[in-house]
Nucleic acid binder design. Sequence first.
DNA 1: AGCTCGCAATCATCCGATGTTAAATGTCCG
DNA 2: CGGACATTTAACATCGGATGATTGCGAGCT
Lengths: 288, 288
Amino acid sequence: MIASSTKSVYGLNIPASPKSRRSGVNGLSSAKRVKSSEKRLKPGRIHVVLTTLGREIAQEIIPAGAVLPPENELEARFGVGRGVVREAIKMLSGKGLVSVRPRHGTRVLPRRDWSLLDRDVLNWLVGEDQPDRELLLAIQEVRSIIEPAAAALAATRATKQDRQRINAALMAMEASGNQATATAADKAFHLAILDATHNPVLQGFRGAIDTILSAVFVVAVDSVAGWFEDNIPNHASTARAIDEGDATKARKAMERVLGLTHSQLSKKRVGAVRRDAEPRGSRSLRQT
Amino acid sequence: MIASSTKSVYGLNIPASPKSRRSGVNGLSSAKRVKSSEKRLKPGRIHVVLTTLGREIAQEIIPAGAVLPPENELEARFGVGRGVVREAIKMLSGKGLVSVRPRHGTRVLPRRDWSLLDRDVLNWLVGEDQPDRELLLAIQEVRSIIEPAAAALAATRATKQDRQRINAALMAMEASGNQATATAADKAFHLAILDATHNPVLQGFRGAIDTILSAVFVVAVDSVAGWFEDNIPNHASTARAIDEGDATKARKAMERVLGLTHSQLSKKRVGAVRRDAEPRGSRSLRQT
DNA sequence: AGCTCGCAATCATCCGATGTTAAATGTCCG
DNA sequence: CGGACATTTAACATCGGATGATTGCGAGCT
């Protein structure tokens, strides 16, 4: 239920507004009567358990190989019933984050086994204050493999509507005023190209690309102000090449798009404004 | 209601043999065991419900947009408790196959939203008697994008062990006697290359590639007997290029590997042992 | 010492009750 | 007659206690 871009199941709009959501829902105070007179959008208990555990695993607060607490302890910790804990863990295991065996507990699997292209997993990994740089670069590397090829395919296969969609996104990028609209337009552009390949497997990357672009914006934007604007011409020539049906040109143009992004991401190393969060790992958020 | 409170749950085909260890498939002793998922170990009731529903959705027995029966009906149908049904559906929703909303039922999402790179989903889609040809070709298209690039990266980054692993797999391919060992060796070869990129996101494709290769073997082998052997030289030159650190050559060689596979897959159209000739709803892939 | 067996921890499943959500429908008053 | 509000209701969401199954590990037997 989390993995939905257009069909918000609960009406919970968590994604784009990264407020520190340290709401103390998971206190062990239990207090069943959460019925307090407000009708706030309640993220759902399963969702809370899922994302909390997912993030703790992704951040290696619970390292690979460790076993997480038994069901009854988790029940107590989150103040939820057993079914909730089980269903949450079931989803984690479905995404390859943990393996659960009868007498041995549920143990965290090495990252090798995670579904790294799953939208939720990616979110937990990258939706942090300071996403793992290496991971971000690895993802960009994969984008540099996928997206130029996708652009080339799109140049061959795009329908009239596909082209319109791509060009509309391009115009939205040019017209974007703030970071929010810029991010949205950029995403729309890349997703439209993926869709224009008419390859369902390639379209399956939509969620991943979407998530990644958010992270890239967060990391890149505050280091290089002109990055987004500088990259618009590359986007434009990609769109033009697809319009003309020139696969090679489209591939090259998309390579330039990603090349610029990549170089911004890499150089973020030094010129950054923030000096904090450098020592990875020992963040101070830890819950017993 | 359920028959009774008896413990005759073994009415299903659940072998109660705690001793029988799944061995065999791993023909190569590459000092790394093919860590099998927990699903392999034992069917389990949840697993039955999960795979049954998953397959029915994948095969469009339950079409996109339809709502599947409510929980209590599913309980009755499978003869399991509610928790089992809920956990199974939870996993389906985690893989993007269904969206579940209170009061509205759990409805099947369009294929666009599925995690097409998820191992289980792929299995359901492709592990049927008659995998969807278009899907198989779409997947091969993605492989042709990913794997040559991966080979090129591997040529740059492979460690000595990586190279040994690749060459060991190659030798196993050459020595393979039957289809089982051939499949295993071929898989090991491609997986070793993915691993040699040292890119964790690329490594995330392991499950998908693994599953796909099984499907490809099933489909391709019975149509063209010499396909596997014919492709060994291409594999060999890929391995050699990686050994020499020649990225361009590795990419080209891998392109040839996939090109041969692709052509076999395409020509499989006729001469098959298949009895059905139904077009079977040529789904989108061409028009949204 | 080595092997077997039983304990206990932990997940797996069942079950019946109750809460929550939101679509559908009915009601009432202007 | 018609629209705003209340009621019904079908479905999922969660709870919590009981029971079964599996298996690591150590106690006890040979």
